[in-house]
Design a protein around this nucleic acid. Structure first.
Lengths: 245, 245
DNA sequence: ACTATCCAAATAATCGATTATCTGTCAAGG
DNA sequence: CCTTGACAGATAATCGATTATTTGGATAGT
């Protein structure tokens, strides 16, 4: 289905976008399952940024042995969500204004570049995937009162952004973007439970998607850049407000 | 020394550039040592691209237990040099024309961007580091007959490129560039034991470095881009010649 | 011959116990 | 009162053995 996944960074344990999963989707080994659970725990803020991860406690919490625990943590290192130091153990990556700003800047650079390449190279199937992802996202409500809707929305939002750039034919670039999206999502999950009033995010997504399938390179790229930039600005404000320097 | 290493991707086990290492430089745990040895084995081509890594054999070869072996391999996954699949084990990342071309393209985009940021933000110490790295590189000969000189040159070359962009103040970006450099170096180590006749690589490096410290943004970026592009072209030719599709 | 099914060897994943390293605390010496 | 060193508890790293999964080949059925 995906055309070229030859070299490094072939998708390792990412979720398959397609809906009809009749064959088991990874999640096989305990290590994999742990990676997923931990990833969710970190991105959702359940595991506080910067906090140390005590192996013994984690082992008991998840009822597993050290080996798969380390295995799972190792993957989160690749994702940039966990840091490690020899003989000093693991800790959840810390957050900071500088970190957020770097993530935003790099997303503007890389994601926009990837979108441009997708528009240049993407086929009809890619277009279809984009429109589907857009539709599913826009039909999903975000209700701050019901956490499960937030989770669902986050999932579809992530899916939308990844689908947009999925036509670029550059696995490594996709890997980088996926990673940046992970890091970015944590900030949003933690600091932003609702959209700032002066934005119509659904419309922003629609504009990007429509520009993309119409191959209006400059327009779509510009819209995406602004979209990312606005989110960055909003997050920065909330970060400042809610206390973290 | 390095200004901000706050968020994700603080340097994990990278080699310290400075020469006078009076305190132990990481390399502590067996896992770390293994990661280094395996990285060198892969980049040098000793471990063939695409080949499967049999845990049992590796365990015996290196006289270690599974735990540190997996630990080491996990790090190489972060480096993009090893791939992993649940219940199917590890294998050395394969090489391909498409992969090489992506690496080259991304280096042109990211490394040039990082250089521009370095010139914008770098301080005098950064300038000094660049000039030192340049000097050390240019004073080192590459003799195809003596492998140890090649290794030494590769190390200094890598160091030079990383130093160039080390002033950008963006740890994540640096991480990405380091990764791309790793991937790229393997191609060079395997396919290119000497420089193509029509190039004066030392001079290319000098031009980039001098443009950088003179803060001549456009010139330095252009030189770097060309430098990367030429290497990509050379590698592509050798790849085609020496048989791999 | 061709496919499907089952078995055994190979290989990966996990566990529980052991060893090595670190961290904080307290006492002795300056 | 501050520094230094040693101890003990906490924590991380490693090991060897055990369990689970995959793979290749032999066998039976069509």
């Amino acid at each position: 289905m995906v055309p070229d996944d030859d070299g490094a960074f072939a998708p390792t344990t990412e979720d398959a976008p397609s809906s009809s999963g009749f064959l088991d989707d990874g999640k096989n080994t305990i290590g994999s399952q742990l990676a997923s659970r931990l990833r969710e725990a970190i991105i959702s803020g359940e595991l506080q940024a910067g906090s140390k991860i005590n192996l013994d406690k984690a082992r008991k919490t998840f009822n597993v042995s050290l080996s798969p625990l380390r295995e799972g943590l190792a993957r989160l290192i690749s994702d940039g969500l966990v840091e490690f130091e020899d003989n000093r153990g693991y800790r959840v990556s810390s957050i900071s204004l500088a970190n957020l700003e770097e993530i935003t800047t790099l997303r503007e650079e890389f994601e926009v570049f990837a979108l441009r390449e997708s528009m240049r190279l993407g086929d009809v199937e890619w277009e279809g995937n984009v429109m589907r992802a857009l539709h599913r996202l826009n039909r999903t409500e975000r209700d701050a009162a019901r956490p499960e809707t937030l989770e669902r929305w986050e999932e579809l939002h992530r899916e939308f952004h990844l689908t947009l750039i999925s036509g670029c034919g550059k696995p490594i670039l996709l890997h980088f973007c996926r990673l940046l999206l992970n890091l970015n999502d944590r900030y949003r999950r933690v600091f932003l439970t609702r959209t700032s009033g002066d934005r119509n995010v659904s419309q922003e997504h629609s504009e990007i998607a429509q520009g993309a399938v119409a191959r209006d390179l400059d327009y779509a790229c510009d819209m995406l850049r602004q979209h990312i930039h606005r989110t960055g600005t909003n997050l920065r404000n909330h970060l400042a407000t809610k206390g973290i320097l």
